[in-house]
Every structure is written in C-alpha cells, then in structure tokens.
Design a protein around this nucleic acid. Structure first.
Lengths: 339, 339
DNA sequence: TACACCGGGACGTTTTGAGTCCATCGTAGA
DNA sequence: TCTACGATGGACTCAAAACGTCCCGGTGTA
C-alpha cells in the first residue's frame, strides 16, 4: 500500500491533502451524526463555501445525505470510513511526525520522507530530492546560498535541477576547510550546485590544520576577505547535521580534543559547531566563514539530515533553534520524538 | 492495491485520469528519448498549452529534464516509470474493458465496476450506484424516465439520492405487469425512485395472466391509455437484462412457451422482449407500455446488468443495438468479450 | 406560536486554466 | 562561418471555475 501511495504522491502530490480533507469531513459528520453546514465549517476551520462544495461532491458520491435538517452519513459513507482507517493511518503517519517536530522545536516547515537513511541509500536520495525542492521554492532572484559539506548535502546538490530562479543564485561554502573528503567538501558541493543549476559559485580555500600564524596571514588576504563577506551575507543556508563523535574522528581531531568534546557533552555538529543535548554550543572548528550569529540574518536555514543513528545529534542542533526548514526521514523522526 | 485505488476513486474520482495522463507523458518521452514540446503534444493528442503545464509539473517533480534541445527523462523518471507499470495495468484494466465494449457494440458510454455480481452482493450495490450516477447526469428538468423491474434496477432505485434536476422528473414503469415479485416490479421501482428523488411517478396496473377479452377492455380504459402515452414519450429508459430461460420460468410461462423460446434461441430478456444471439427479437410478453420502436425516440437508454452468468444474455441484448449507456461489472464484461 | 438553524440559490469578485503568439537560444547543416 | 530550423520560455487575452458573502424559504423545537 505504501508503495502505491508513494508513487501517486510523485505524480499527484496533493492527492493526500484532498483525500485527508474529505476524510475529515466524513469523520466529523460521523461524530456529529447530524450537523449543519455552518457548524461543520467552523469545526473544520473551513469557509462555508468550500465546505459546501465538498459536501456537494460527497453527496454526489453517495457518501453523505443532505436533508433539510442537516447533513448525515449514508451506509456507504460509514462503510468507506471504516475501510479508509488503516489507509489514513498510513497516509498521515508522516504528516503527524512533521507536525510534532514542527511544534516541539518551533520550526517553520518540516518534511519527513519514508524510510531510514541508515538502512537504504534510496532514502538519502529522497532526502536530497525533497531538500532540493525546498531550496528551489525558497530561492528568489540572485540569492546567496551558503552550503555545508557532507554526503547528505552532496546528495541535495545531485538532485538539484535548473530553474529560472536558481540560475541567478550564487553558491558558497558556509565555512572553510573542515577536513571532509574532497568529494563531500563544502567547496565541491557549492560548485556542483552551481553547475547543476546554471548559477555561480565562489570558493573558499582554507587548508586544514594550519598554524595560528599562517592562519592569521591568510585571513588578511583581500580575496579571502571578500569571499567571507559574501558568505556572511548569505540569505539561505543549507546544511547537514553530523554526530559529534563521528565528525571529530573523521576530521582527525587529537584524542585530547575528542575527549574534551565528549566531556562537554557534544552530540550534534553542524558546519563546524558542536552542540550539546540542550542545544548549547560547546566547541567549534578553527576556520573562517559563516558565524553562528549570521544565521539570524539569513532568510532561511535549511537542515537536511536523516537516519535513526543521527536522531540525538539532530535533536541537539534543533534545540539551538535557528532552523526554518528541516528535511529528515522517518527513522530519525521517530528517534528524535521518542525522547 | 486494488482496495486502495477503489477507496481513492470514491473520494477523488479523477485521480485515475490524471495519473494515467501523466504516466502516458512519461512513457512517450521515454520512447522518444528526446522530444520537443509540439511533437509530444501532437503525439498525445493534447494542446500544446496543457502539455506544457504537465511537463512543467513533471520537471518540478524531478521526473523530466527540459533542455534547450528538448525534453528527456531523468533517472528518477525512469525509475518511477518502471515501478508504475504494474499499478497502471491494474488501473487501466477496467478502462480497457469499457473501451472494448464501447467499440464492439457501438455504445456511447460503458461503465464497468470491479468484481462479479454473482459472487458478491456488494458488487450489485456498486452497479446500482454507478447507474444512479449516470441517470442523474442524464436527466434534465422534467424528464420522463421509464424503468423496468428486477433486482438490479431496484438496487439503482435504492442508490438514488435527491438532486435538483431529478426533483422534476416523472418515473413510470416501462411496461405493465411482467410477473415479477412485488418488491422488484417496475411499478415498485418507479415509486421508490420517485420517493428517493422527490420526483413524481405514475403507475400502470395491468394484472398478469389476463384473458384476451379482459385485456382488450382494459386497454380502452382512459387512464390506462393516458399512462401508456406518458410511458411511450419517455426520454430516458433504464432497464435490466435477464437470462431468457430464468425469466420465462420466473414468470410461470407454460412449458410449451419455454420450449418455444429455447427453440427460437432466446438468450437475453429486457422489459418483456426476448432476444437471440444475434440481437433479433424472437418473442415478447403480452402486456402494454413501451414498445421497442419507442426506444428510437428516447434520448438515452441505460442498461444495467452484471454477473458472469448473464454475460451471454447481456451480449444478445446489446447486439440489438439500442443502448446509450451500459453499466456492468468485471465478471460480465469478461464473459461478453471472450466470445 | 416564535425562534433558531437548516439547505439552497444568487451575485460579484478573484483566481486559475487554456489558447495563441512571439522572442530568444542552441544546434546542425551547408 | 553563416543561416535556418526547431526548441523552450515568456506574455497576453479570454473564459470558466472557485470562492466569499448574503439572503430566502422551510422545518423542528422550545
């Protein structure tokens, strides 16, 4: 059943919304037994007119009966309602996760896709696809988009396609070298995005593991400074979320640093900042680029991360509370919400 | 899967059409590999504009790619197409039956519902529901509707609901007493329909098994004549189809008559007329009301009958060739088409 | 008997959908 | 290298559907 619904959602995305709406109408009528049009409209938060159109339709379908004293169910309607229940559970399952996440962390929009990135690579693709869609909808003409690195965001880049609005965008890495492998570096991701969309991109070349002195010298470079300025003016930020321990090790942090991170309770990581379970920043990678306070000025901050193993990490970053849009998967959503 | 689709069809009837259309677009693009908008529109019998809207949508969904040299598939689109195939077979199965029946017998509209009336009484309800819908759509203000008897048409009456157009209608039995049980008599059906819709009805009281003399006397009765005149002016005729042998026996025909019918090759029966396998009328019940030639003047003739056991009978009546709309079920459709 | 609430009809406004035409761009072929 | 063709994408117009809103006649109930 899930397969059918997923396929349909691709070819007719609002099928779910319409069916849900009509199901709710039937459900309410069932609860009231007999109810007037206006009462029903108020209780469903609809205007009278649209409810009326829906009721007329359901009457045509023989599911509702409309008499002079009100609206009530037909036997066929009752039967349909019974048969729909398992399907609706299935259909609204993800919607419920989305709503709960939205409420708990105060995020503007949450998108949850089926499955678990830990278990199937297809889910990560889907994650990328939905994030790419969200990005496309967020972007306006000539927007600066700052992106982090990581395999998930790389997948977002892969799923991007050109669109009129995106063509004028400028893609930049959110922060300088964070010790990722080349393929998943923020620089690479930004350039792939620019290529896929027909937009522009700027690179930020900051080698890893630089001595303090060389580092300060580099910062004085005019073209570095210029790029950093562009980055910090980003109106849209797209970033992944990593597990603090995994990220620290991958970046070849010293054992002392890893130890320190763990003692500080670091759980999640996003563009070089480490967060603890309360969403407090406990550490950060020594590099240049987007600063945490710049997020306040950004129009939209889009987090993309999935997989049940990342649940706690995602939650820690969400608690910091700067996200506008979260794209995640069922596995992570379950994990996040069960604590 | 079938269950999900059936439920959806009740809450969103044109979901099938839209999905089919979009699937076809993908399919064509796949076949062409790369194709221009106009070429594609012509090949799909669409106007350029609507195709364009669809292509834009499919592009947004990441299923098609639009470049300056034409339209082509994305990997995601190919994948979707593969996964859709079994679903489309399922979805278009009934549609194919409908089309084949339409072609073979030259009927204006054919509706085939899932299942087999012989096996499940639910299918007969569904048959009634679809026929009621077709009737509602056919009727205009103050239409005379002539109906036959039988359990199927009785079900149609049960499924009717009031609508503005139907309120002005006049329901009449197509022909006088045909020896059905009271519940399923045409008179009863007409009165139920009138009650359900808020319309009017006229009765035609002609007792069964009347002697020739009494019969002729009855015909002279002014009010009988008046009702007959109304009947013969019917603009819409709704009738069932029976198996000749079964009907003859149910009506307590003499063994000689049954024998004669069989020898004449009677297969199907509709409102008192018996048809052989070539659609030729071989016999008729001795009563008054609608005559066969009146069907020519009727605007719409709606036949409702299902069940694989009735397949041959239905085919024999269809061959006579007076139907505008046929409502049947999967079981009967298969049987009819396999000969 | 009076009142409150019901469905249905009507009307003006707004939004969406569809038909048509044209500008621009890229590619292929001469 | 230039030209011509066919591609997309944008713009404009008109029609139709959707919607918000108000009112009317009827009906059940207090």
């Amino acid at each position: 059943m899930k397969a059918v619904l997923d396929l349909q959602k691709q070819l007719l995305p609002d099928v779910l919304d319409i069916i849900k709406k009509r199901y709710q109408i039937l459900h309410h009528v069932m609860a009231y037994r007999v109810v007037g049009r206006r009462t029903l409209a108020a209780s469903l938060h609809m205007t009278e007119r649209v409810l009326r159109a829906e009721v007329d339709f359901l009457k045509e379908q023989g599911l509702l009966e409309v008499e002079s004293f009100g609206i009530k169910m037909t036997p066929a309607g009752k039967k349909l309602l019974d048969e729909m229940e398992p399907m609706m559970k299935e259909m609204t399952g993800l919607a419920r996760y989305e709503e709960q996440l939205r409420q708990r962390f105060g995020i503007g929009q949450v998108i949850v896709v089926h499955g678990d990135s830990d278990e199937s690579s297809y889910v990560k693709q889907e994650l990328g696809r939905m994030a790419a869609l969200a990005l496309r909808k967020s972007v306006q003409k000539e927007t600066v988009v700052a992106v982090s690195g990581g395999s998930t965001i790389y997948e977002v880049a892969q799923q991007l396609a050109s669109s009129t609005a995106l063509k004028g965008s400028i893609f930049v890495p959110a922060r300088g070298g964070l010790g990722e492998s080349v393929e998943y570096q923020a620089n690479t991701v930004a350039s792939v995005m620019a290529k896929k969309t027909g937009g522009q991109h700027r690179m930020l070349h900051v080698p890893d593991h630089l001595g303090e002195e060389a580092y300060q010298t580099l910062l004085q470079e005019p073209n570095i400074q210029e790029v950093v300025q562009v980055i910090r003016s980003a109106r849209i930020v797209v970033h992944g979320i990593g597990e603090a321990k995994v990220m620290a090790k991958r970046r070849k942090a010293s054992p002392e640093l890893v130890q320190a991170l763990l003692e500080e309770g670091a759980l999640g990581e996003a563009f070089g900042y480490y967060f603890d379970r309360n969403g407090v920043v406990v550490n950060r990678m020594p590099t240049v680029g987007l600063k945490l306070e710049d997020l306040q000025n950004a129009e939209k901050v889009i987090a993309v991360a999935g997989g049940s193993s990342k649940g706690e990490s995602i939650a820690s970053v969400l608690r910091y509370g700067c996200e506008s849009i979260l794209v995640t998967d069922e596995g992570a959503a379950k994990k996040i919400l069960q604590d």
